[in-house]
Design a protein around this nucleic acid. Structure first.
Lengths: 244, 244
DNA sequence: AAGTGGTCTAGACCACACC
DNA sequence: GTGTGGTCTAGACCACTTC
């Protein structure tokens, strides 16, 4: 077994048996290298794999820390076509005493073939809205919304005061339902990594979906990128399904 | 911008503009390093990030190759509680002219607190079955099934001749439905990486679920790890939902 | 200023696949 | 044997954070 993997296991063991606890700072890389009689790069390789897996948190200038245990949050999606998912999620979080906030990152007129296709919008300007979901001041997800600019004219001034779907529904009298949702996994890009506070290349859960109005016409296409160590989704078939 | 990221972008550009096509072999690392006037380690860092993202495929002793474009496969899950998902997937694949096979990796009596909890089985031996989903001879997913050994006595001799669920249903007269399915993302462990033919740390889509019989009693707990560059899931709300 | 991680180099040897 | 990627070392300098 390669040296760096031995170092990796050694660190994992120290975490597992409590020698290193969540929040603890590891010895400096040079320190570890000296202690273990290996090169600093070997230590770095071990650390970077553990950081990608979410077990360590590396902070330039500060040190390397044992990550907090994954406070996984489970969202239950019933078979209904309701829009309540994120609201349900937020409600559950607040019951647990957590604070949550959807922070506006940017909004602009932009182009995307993919968004046009999902929205069935061949012409007209598209608006892109980027937000960050913060739970207890920590990044949990980043979201990108696409919709026809004409449909939500003047939304730029309304954004920033609550979650995007609520603003759309409240101010524009739209009743939105899911048409579909998709789940995939991807490696964090440098931008993802920065906004989610994770290592580049870490796995992120990619969740896309299209929302339709009561006539079934696509209105919003949304793409979310979630920290995989903090969120997972459960699709549950509620008991009331048996009434079908 | 760091050098290795410049090299990374340079390679991405060559792939994008067609200078490097899927299946092509890249120049050797030492060659690239000489050509770009950088150290081999710098080239390696660029390559390893692209390999984790699924754009390159690295083969020791052979070379580094441009990965085939992601032949994404979409599974549509209706709101029904049927078991048809993998069968539907396999059917679609075969319509496309692909071959698919669920290959048995191992089966044994084993223990897992998690499995016991999901199955509600406090006592009795548990059987674990590991399989690999191959499409066109290539690994697409690895699966782990857990169930009470008594429920499917003698299944060891039946396995290896078709997919696990079909064997369970056909030979043991069980009618299975989904109770729930979960979606998450994770970093590929060394074992995942080997079985899925991807780089360690690559993102994998983790899909778990519990299947119940007609009385609603949990029978099988299954965990699948999917190559994220080859599969994504879509939860679609079929039109017939409107009949509810 | 001091200490941390981030990047880069030059060079060596090993493990694996193919001929 | 030859060429590929895989691992490891020693050493240097840079960027960031805190004091």
């Amino acid at each position: 077994m390669p040296l760096y993997r031995q170092v990796q296991q050694l660190l994992e063991n120290r975490i597992e048996n409590g020698q290193l606890r969540p929040g603890d700072r590891l010895p400096a890389e040079t320190e570890l290298a000296r202690e273990l009689q290996v090169n600093r790069l070997t230590v770095r390789q071990a650390i970077s794999e553990l950081a990608r897996a979410g077990q360590l948190l590396v902070r330039q200038g500060l040190g390397t820390f044992v990550a907090e245990p994954a406070a996984q949050f489970t969202v239950t999606l019933g078979p209904e076509r309701t829009m309540a998912v994120m609201e349900q999620a937020v409600a559950t979080l607040q019951e647990e005493g957590r604070t949550s906030e959807e922070r506006l990152l940017s909004t602009e007129i932009a182009e995307s073939d993919q968004a046009r296709e999902h929205l069935g919008a061949r012409r007209g300007r598209l608006r892109r809205v980027d937000t960050q979901l913060l739970v207890d001041q920590q990044a949990w997800a980043i979201n990108t919304y696409w919709f026809g600019d004409a449909r939500f004219r003047g939304i730029g001034k309304l954004l920033g005061a609550g979650d995007v779907f609520r603003i759309c529904c409240d101010h524009y009298a739209v009743d939105l339902h899911y048409a579909w949702r998709s789940f995939a996994a991807a490696a964090a890009s440098p931008r993802d990594a920065e906004l989610l506070d994770i290592a580049v290349g870490s796995p992120v859960l990619l969740r896309e979906g299209v929302n339709v109005n009561t006539e079934g016409k696509p209105v919003i296409y949304v793409s979310r990128r979630l920290r995989s160590d903090r969120m997972r989704f459960i699709v549950r078939y509620d008991t009331d399904t048996s009434r079908r």
